[in-house]
Design a protein around this nucleic acid. Structure first.
Lengths: 344, 344
DNA sequence: GTGAAAGCGCTAACAC
DNA sequence: GTGTTAGCGCTTTCAC
């Protein structure tokens, strides 16, 4: 910029104004300045601008894990939305640890991002970490695993009604002993899906058997253990509804190993994203998350808050999740399993 | 910082020095300053530092797509390596378009990142976009899909020997008409895997049949078409080696739909990452990419270049890829298919 | 051992 | 219409 000013024999501020089409700079000068800027491919130094304006056009994204399809596709939505509105994203993974989450959050604050999009880590119990954010007045939007929804905006899916729908779906397909492998109780997604499961049972006139509700920490190993536990029951369940992907795939492996057939002996449904569900055999009946949209919506809410003149109240957006019926919950005509046979 | 100086009745520069344990600041002062900084949770403004030092502790990552496991797991490796060394990552997706890649690259340069990690988009033909980077002297490391390896460092796997190994593996399992669905020829990965395929055929004393080498653009639809084309051959192949994940999964679906059994009628192998391969049925024999390590290695090379006093020459790291033998290429004992039967 | 001052690149209020 | 100046937050040379 200085060079341009020198070259054209004008002052730096004139150049600055010319570059932003300020109303009272002579048109010829504007053209000349812009040509030169182009030629020397000048781009404004974001640090200088950031220092001056206290904004960075950058948003921080904190997810529990980068590898899982669920998160990577949400990130894809975030990236796409951010790009459209001229923002950049800095990504951090908490690796499901609230300790690392805290550090990353601090990092992002230190970097002076304009806003944050966060999904809680699995072990997030003490959510007071977010006091810091509240104090700093940096807009934050949670997605999926949320907390303090009165204070921060969030994007979720309607877990309760989706879980209810899944449960009723299993009932309608002849399953009567419907079990649920739930996630950690500190997470809203676990609690809400349990609630929906219970509502679903009630809708169907089934009584709740506490033995059929087991918890696990969402790891492959623990899910396998949970499945084992269910199967070792004197009257084992004839259907399992899993809180998420990992749990369901793990359960499926255990069932196969024991020689139990899905959907014949045991029906299987879960919350999952679109990709995996169609790759396993049998294809999985599941609540499909609109992952890309979750990302888009989250970044939309966030940028609205960032660009708002006055402080927004927290908003909560619940996206519609869809039950996709595939093979794992539909007993083939005439293919009544021994388990369900005993039952009828 | 100003507040701390005022509070303690010293100058700003003293505070600055105290915070970095400068040798000739009195120890008591250092303690006091640090306490206050802690209390008011002061963190240096990265814009001010960036402006002054012309470095940002930020690296830009440009990938063809964020959703695919291959890329998301590499990003995970990058994030992890960057975190360890105190760097942050800004992520951009080119969505496989070289036009978008160019824009993103420009964005990242504008942001004054300290370095770049890039994987070419599928249609990258004109690699002169990178002249810009060379001119700007910002370190750049390519991974997987690379170009201009004399000018930029890169992290790849040894595609030629891996493809060769795959081909020989098929031969050893009784397959004789081995086809290859290749990717776009502008990509090094396609060319190298074709080369390995040809070497493998030669090793086995098989002659190369040009009909058995088809190209596709890596999309699901085109892979399906390519598979159809191979199957419609008067003497269709008894094994298919696919250039990557998508191609193989697509081929598998087509084969299933036509009622052909894998591995019995047609053997199937490919280049893939670890997750999907064990989820499909039959499990896929494949060259496993050490994705996390690719990311780690790339960020390692990059940070070495960033932190080097003098300009490094470009380095090329080739990681060992491993053949993981699973079900899709092993004919069951006695289970000779009609196709292979004709052949023997 | 500590302070004053310049300057990193840019903008905007205020001059003229 | 255009130039001058102050200042965003910080580091560092030079002075004392």
């Amino acid at each position: 910029m200085k060079d341009i000013a020198n070259e054209l024999g004008v002052s730096i501020s004139t150049v600055s104004r010319a570059l932003k089409d300020h109303y009272d700079i002579s048109p010829e000068l504007i053209v000349k300045v812009k040509e030169l800027a182009q030629k020397w491919n000048y781009t404004p130094n974001p640090f200088a601008v950031g220092l001056l304006k206290q904004r960075t056009k950058t948003i921080g994204v904190l997810v529990p894990d980068l590898v899982t399809y669920f998160y990577s596709s949400i990130i894809s939505g975030i990236e796409s939305g951010a790009r459209e509105r001229g923002y950049h994203i800095i990504i951090k993974s908490s690796q499901e640890s609230s300790q690392k989450a805290k550090e990353s959050l601090q990092n992002l604050l230190d970097l002076r991002v304009d806003g944050l999009i966060v999904c809680l880590s699995q072990d997030a119990v003490d959510v007071s970490d977010f006091d810091l954010i509240l104090a700093s007045e940096i807009p934050l939007v949670f997605f999926d695993r949320v907390c303090r929804v009165d204070e921060f905006s969030s994007v979720v899916i309607d877990n309760v009604s989706a879980a209810r729908e899944l449960t009723v779906h299993l009932f309608e397909n002849g399953y009567r002993r419907i079990a649920h492998i739930a996630g950690p109780e500190n997470l809203n997604i676990s609690r809400e899906r349990i609630a929906g499961y219970l509502e679903g049972l009630e809708d169907c006139g089934l009584s709740f058997n506490p033995d059929y509700l087991v918890h696990c920490d969402l790891s492959i190993d623990q899910s396998a253990l949970a499945t084992d536990q269910l199967l070792s029951h004197p009257l084992p369940p004839d259907a399992v509804f899993g809180v998420n992907d990992t749990v369901i795939f793990s359960a499926m492996k255990v069932l196969k190993k024991k020689g139990l057939k899905v959907p014949c002996d045991v029906g299987l449904v879960g919350f999952t994203d679109e990709f995996h569900a169609t790759v396993v055999e049998p294809n999985l009946t599941a609540i499909a998350h609109p992952t890309f949209e979750i990302g888009k919506e989250a970044v939309g809410l966030l940028l609205d808050e960032i660009q708002a003149e006055t402080k927004h109240p927290a908003r909560q957006v619940a996206l519609k999740a869809k039950l996709i019926v595939r093979e794992s919950s539909i007993r083939k005509r005439g293919g009544v399993s021994k388990v369900s046979f005993e039952d009828h």
